[in-house]
């Protein structure tokens, strides 16, 4: 290159070489700078802005593609029918209405990382523990938030009057079948913080989901669906869970006194930062379905590893997560 001829072979390396060779001091140097900025150009508490695209898949009832920085997730929701007569252990009558979805397993989320999204997850192997734990965490959030109304998933049938019935008795309505929602989440590109992106994709896809009108056909003894678009109805999410993750970068080590250690909280860590951080905090906030409606409540706080995050820091993170939640809701609401 021409530049090299003028200056001679340089004694400095380009930034990404430093990042590869000594990642920890590289990140530390950035954070210790008098105007600290992370290597990816973000402020400490700055999240990546998501781009959300819904309804692009033909064969699913609802779908979303979410891109958060260099992490891309596609989610497809597909409804299939579970006949009530096929359920081996029918739910007891005293089961709380909102627990029905979990009890019958009507929501089946699965997250797949082996799509070649990163060199660490090569297909041909069973799902890694990361993939398994992400699937489980998403399923737990969906069940705990009760965002899916069980009534949306019921397929009811009003039984015709028989001679045994009393004349004034109202017609009996029975649930003949349930919709089961298969939520398949594929991570197409992974650059840190898969959970936030995946959960956002799931909520966006569920909001996009429309289920056809279905009824019990007594002659065929099966469920039939109407192909007419105007008959279908969309899934109404009663709440909207939004996750915000934070990672802690710390200089603490076994060789140093604990007081000497310095720590930084990094919002929405990317793949490079995630490798260097042992301690993470995920805050899932639950709020009303549309912008500016309902109260926001804490659904879940998950903290793993490390000893830095205490009461104050958690409080700060929840505050930031609440701001993040309203940002996400505006992004979703504009769709």
């Amino acid at each position: 290159m021409a530049n090299d001829a003028e200056t001679g072979p340089g004694l400095t390396f380009p930034q990404d070489t430093f990042a590869k060779l000594t990642p920890r001091p590289y990140l530390l140097a950035h954070l210790k700078h008098k105007t600290p900025v992370r290597p990816n150009g973000r402020q400490q508490n700055e999240f990546r802005q998501p781009t959300i695209n819904t309804g692009s898949l033909t064969h699913s009832n609802g779908s979303a593609v979410v891109r958060v920085g260099d992490t891309a997730v596609v989610c497809g929701v597909r409804g299939e029918i579970l006949l009530a007569s096929d359920i081996p252990h029918p739910p007891s009558d005293d089961l709380e209405e909102q627990d029905l979805v979990e009890e019958l397993g009507l929501v089946v989320p699965n997250l797949e990382l082996s799509t070649g999204c990163s060199p660490a997850h090569i297909p041909g192997n069973p799902p890694t523990s990361l993939a398994q734990s992400l699937s489980y965490r998403i399923s737990a959030v969906l069940h705990d938030s009760h965002c899916i109304n069980p009534d949306d998933l019921r397929i009811n049938y009003t039984e015709p009057k028989t001679e045994d019935d009393l004349p004034d008795e109202p017609p009996k309505e029975v649930t003949k079948a349930y919709w089961t929602l298969y939520i398949d989440i594929l991570c197409l590109a992974l650059d840190g913080n898969a959970f936030d992106a995946a959960l956002l994709a799931v909520t966006a896809a569920l909001r996009d989901t429309t289920l056809p009108k279905a009824w019990w056909d007594p002659d065929r003894e099966s469920i039939l669906c109407s192909p007419v678009v105007s008959d279908s109805r969309s899934l109404r999410l009663s709440t909207m869970p939004v996750a915000s993750s934070f990672a802690v970068f710390s200089t603490a080590s076994h060789l140093k006194k604990r007081e000497e250690a310095q720590s930084w909280i990094l919002a929405d860590a990317d793949g490079f930062e995630e490798e260097l951080c042992d301690e993470t905090l995920t805050v899932v906030l639950n709020s009303g379905p549309s912008t500016g409606s309902g109260t926001t409540s804490i659904l879940k706080i998950e903290k793993t590893g490390g000893t830095y995050i205490g009461k104050d820091v958690t409080d700060l993170c929840v505050r930031q997560a609440s701001k993040r939640t309203s940002d996400i809701k505006t992004a979703l609401g504009n769709r």
Binding site: V108, P109, I223, P227
Partner: peptide, 23 residues
């Protein structure tokens, strides 16, 4: 290692052939 379908097993929806939605 994955979340599984409900034990009863599910079937894909069967669409009725309606005159207003002729394909």
């Amino acid at each position: 290692r994955r979340m599984n379908a409900p034990p009863g097993g599910t079937s894909p929806p069967v669409f009725a052939s309606l005159p207003e939605a002729k394909l």
